[in-house]
């Protein structure tokens, strides 16, 4: 699972609907892996508009990943160093093992062999 996917996921337990707490999910006991990805400038620029920047900054800082400005820069395109760093973080940083825990309800979503398990029990839907 790439970090870009994590930025799109939220805790979706029905009773867990406080947007301040159900996103972003907190990584725990993770094993990271860098996997080379094709460069795609159009995708990177689209992602910058789509991702939640504060959530990305919080998540990377919890994982010990550096190199992102704390607030989203107005223009990313003309900053090749930042574009490269975003490529490495969003598209090339993969979570191989671990779990994602909701800060609201504590629900834990396991990640095994790169596949997050986002299934809920019947009573949580």
């Amino acid at each position: 699972m790439r970090l870009l996917t994590h930025n799109m996921l939220q805790c979706h337990v029905k009773s867990c609907n406080d947007p301040a707490l159900n996103f972003p999910l907190q990584f725990q006991e993770v094993e990271l892996e860098q996997i080379e990805a094709e460069e795609n400038e159009a995708l990177l620029l689209n992602l910058v508009g789509k991702i939640d920047w504060p959530a990305l900054v919080q998540t990377t800082s919890e994982l010990g990943i550096t190199g992102l400005p704390p607030t989203k820069p107005d223009v990313v395109k003309n900053d090749p160093a930042l574009m490269k760093r975003l490529h490495e973080i969003l598209l090339e940083t993969n979570v191989a093992q671990g779990k994602m825990v909701c800060r609201g309800c504590g629900h834990s979503y396991p990640i095994k062999d790169g596949i997050p398990n986002m299934l809920l029990a019947e009573h949580e839907i």
Binding site: M1, M8, Q10, I35, K50, I115, M118, L119, L120
Partner: peptide, 23 residues
């Protein structure tokens, strides 16, 4: 996942993605 694609185990009746996000 083995082909290098993003793969998430999820139920179509309750998707784990945030709202108003994908193109």
């Amino acid at each position: 996942q083995g082909r290098g694609f993003e793969a998430t185990l999820a139920d179509n009746l309750a998707l784990p993605y945030r709202s108003d996000r994908v193109d």
